[in-house]
């Protein structure tokens, strides 16, 4: 059965890497950069899809060899799903029954958010700088649709939203998921949940040096259903009457065939 294709990122900077040590000697001020680039810009979900690991390759540009030796460069790679509004509901007890009562809507919540890092997040940089970058499952800024709500309520529902997404495997952290293969080259492994959303996902790479954020780079990745699944989905949404007739006819045919195949009387 077909499986998700690994999206290998190309190394557009390979030539540059070879020359870096020479230039490092002459220019002490390093102009670090980070590169990722996808060899495939779309991933197809087929019938057998049950989640996958996506491997992303990337490279540092012009790193300081001394800092590389000390292991003071850190990379965080994020695969962020399309943003959509989400409603969070809370159940409370009414006459002993758990009923959805309060709710809060958030605009532009990423459907999925997989992070891979070189080290645990708290070891890379300060919480304040994560907040500023809106980086990490616990730091993404969730915009409430109704900002006049009590801050405590918004905090509570934001917290709950992150918790539910994490529990569903849609928000994940893979500590140690980014590994340096050489001075410049790194590999990041991010998790795609079985119910990953289709749409335009964005791979983003963040570079830190000594706990200070330096650069960010991103690439786009289209995740879509493969031929048959996509056809069924399209048919159901664009040609509802025809699709439902098909569903009914299929049911009648199955019922009739079942009768013939299994008939004992």
């Amino acid at each position: 059965m077909a499986r998700i294709k690994k999206a290998w990122l190309l190394l557009p900077v390979l030539a540059l890497l070879l020359t870096t040590p020479a230039t490092a000697q002459t220019t002490p001020a390093h102009q670090e950069g980070i590169q990722i680039g996808l060899s495939t810009d779309n991933v197809a979900i087929t019938a057998g899809f049950s989640g996958a690991n996506l491997t992303i390759f990337g490279a540092l540009e012009d790193p300081d060899p001394q800092i590389v030796r000390q292991g003071r460069y850190d990379v965080i790679v994020v695969l962020e799903g399309p943003s959509r509004p989400v409603r969070v509901r809370r159940k409370d007890r009414v006459l002993g029954v758990w009923v959805n009562l309060e709710s809060e809507t958030f605009e532009n919540v990423p459907v999925s958010y997989s992070v891979a890092t070189t080290r645990p997040l708290q070891d890379i940089t300060e919480p304040a700088s994560y907040k500023q970058l809106s980086l990490g499952p616990n730091n993404i800024y969730m915009q409430p649709a109704d900002p006049d709500q009590a801050p405590a309520t918004i905090r509570e529902f934001t917290q709950a939203l992150r918790q539910r997404k994490t529990a569903a495997g849609l928000y994940s952290e893979n500590i140690g998921g980014v590994q340096f293969l050489s001075q410049n080259l790194f590999r990041a492994t991010v998790r795609l949940a079985p119910d990953v959303s289709v749409g335009t996902h964005r791979a983003r790479a963040f570079l830190f040096k000594n706990g200070v954020f330096l650069k960010e780079n991103s690439a786009q990745l289209e995740i879509r259903k493969s031929g048959f699944e996509q056809a069924v989905f399209r048919l159901a949404h664009n040609h509802g009457p025809f699709y439902s007739m098909l569903a009914i006819a299929l049911a009648i045919l199955t019922g009739w065939l079942g009768r013939i195949v299994f008939r004992k009387d």
Binding site: R84, R87, R89, W98, N100, R164, A167
Partner: peptide
């Protein structure tokens, strides 16, 4: 319920 919160698309 294990979680009293639930998410739904808008």
């Amino acid at each position: 319920p294990p979680s009293i919160y639930s998410l739904s698309a808008v």
